[in-house]
């Protein structure tokens, strides 16, 4: 069965490719928060639209930020 396409859905793009960012800084919690869900999980690529190269770096950065208490592990 073909997947239904949602016309209201915005076109996905990789934020880091579009803005020419090569490295992702784990110290910038405000930015990283964009790619965590309301349960503070890392958002999967199929939802965030980040390319595979940057998704790997992003996941690493989020995990480092969590360890340094910049991002939470669990919601309050």
């Amino acid at each position: 069965m073909p997947r239904e396409t949602n016309l209201l859905e915005k076109e996905k793009y990789c934020y880091f490719c579009v803005n020419g960012l090569k490295d992702i800084d784990y110290k910038d919690g405000q930015l990283l928060r964009r790619w965590t869900s309301s349960y503070n999980k890392i958002v999967p690529r199929r939802r965030s639209g980040v390319c595979s190269k940057h998704q790997r770096k992003l996941a690493n950065a989020i995990k480092r930020a969590r360890y340094m208490a910049i991002l939470p592990y669990l919601p309050r």
């Binding site: 110290k27 919690g29 969590r66 208490a69 910049i70 991002l71 939470p72 592990y73 669990l74």
Partner: peptide, 16 residues
Amino acid sequence: AGKLKFAYPIKQQNHG
């Protein structure tokens, strides 16, 4: 980097 609030308490502390 300044005195910041933790996202979760570390050793019963909220700032560092």
